[in-house]
């Protein structure tokens, strides 16, 4: 259970970091507005030559491999809700790095998600 949770946390952190990198890279390319096939090809080519997009995709691939390891050990109905840990990580980072205020409603949400993750974690069945 502890081992699986550790790999799951790696997967969650990779997913969050990969998404940030991909988004930063795509922001430089600008929004996709023209859906002509030739334009799509050019946009895709520009995307794969952008180092941030490439790094983001690579990290997301690593996240997928970690998720496969988790699924080889854990039941799906245990592993999928455990991904809610991401909301707690994001809330913590927002508070710590971006100075977001923790108003009562958000604190209540964090409390409910934490309690739910804890109960789900304890419902582990297996070695």
């Amino acid at each position: 259970m502890i081992k699986t949770t550790c790999i799951l946390v790696v997967s969650i952190v990779c997913s969050a970091y990969g998404n940030v990198l991909t988004r930063q890279g795509l922001k430089k390319l600008g929004p996709l507005e023209d859906f002509h096939p030739l334009h799509l090809l050019r946009y895709g080519w520009a995307a794969v030559r952008n180092p941030q997009v490439l790094a983001g995709v690579a990290i997301n691939f690593g996240q997928f491999l970690a998720w496969l390891i988790v699924l080889s050990w854990a039941e799906l109905s245990w592993a999928l809700p455990m991904n809610a840990l991401e909301y707690l990580v994001v809330a913590y980072l927002g508070w710590k790095l971006l100075g977001e205020r923790l108003e009562p409603r958000r604190l209540a949400g964090i409390g409910l998600v934490s309690a739910g993750v804890l109960l789900t974690m304890l419902s582990w069945k297996g070695p």
């Binding site: 809610a84 909301y87 739910g116 804890l118």
Partner: peptide
């Protein structure tokens, strides 16, 4: 119960 709490918490968040 864990899943129900998570769904409620995510809605609040």
């Amino acid at each position: 119960a864990g899943i129900a709490l998570i769904c409620a918490g995510v809605a609040l968040l």
